[in-house]
Amino acid sequence: MSRIPLSALIGLVITAAFFGAALLAPWIAPYGMAEVAGGVWDPSSPEHWLGTDSIGRDLLSRMIWGGRITIFVALAATLVAFATGVFLGFLAAVSGGWVDQALSRLVDLLMSIPALIMALVILSVMPVTLPVLIAVMGLIEATRVFRLSRAVAADIEVMDYVEAARLRGEGMVWVIFREILPNALSPLVAEAGLRFIFMVLFISTLSFLGLGVQPPLADWGGIVRENKDGIVYGVPAALFPAVAVAALAISVNLVADWILTRTSSLKGGRG
């Protein structure tokens, strides 16, 4: 952790700013999330730094509240994805045999359906609440995490120290959580960063299509949806959330890249 490269530093600062804004939304947002505070699509002014939206709500406040929801949903879904994906992936690698076959084929089956289409189909028959949204996104993304963690664990599983643990008579729980998990952590942490970005894009896409976060709550994808008609009249309101999504994605990516190179370097590897 001696020196942080410039790119990673920029990424860290921007990511921290986004997360900070999300956490402190009630205190720093100038207006309420659903408060009508001006005219339709007012241009930016000292009262409304980014102007107002399609029904006169302050856009900066909407952005801050929306970021809070986007980041919260993406983070929660990433956690769900990793909790299930990593556990099942490790279980498959350690058990082998029919457990591995059953899990791997099930995941193959799920992965053969495009993620977005599957999410749209499921969400169109389920009540679209935040917990459902998080669970659906998390479980779909868990298939990707499963593949990675199974591959990582399969590499570690053949090491002599895992064999030594088996010869000692250790159970599955010890092998998974004490022998494999600590050694798989670095690639998984780097992957978590990337998965988080995919989740941000995923929830934004769903909201834009109307099957994500439901009004009166707002998220960035939803704000784009509400304001997309303004683009025809030269109103830039829809661009701000789009830029926010891109900026968050790039900054988290910079951090994830740095973690990945740090942990996959020759010497630093699993030492």
Binding site: Y161, A164, L167, R168, G169, R178, R270
Partner: peptide
């Protein structure tokens, strides 16, 4: 098979490997 052996069987029969590097968990 390993699964059929008692804890005592396992204890009385230990093994040392060629590559000490990979025989120890680097995180312990």
């Amino acid at each position: 098979a390993l699964s059929g052996r008692s804890k005592n069987d396992l204890r009385e029969l230990q093994m040392i490997y060629q590559m000490a590097d990979t025989a120890m968990n680097p995180r312990q």
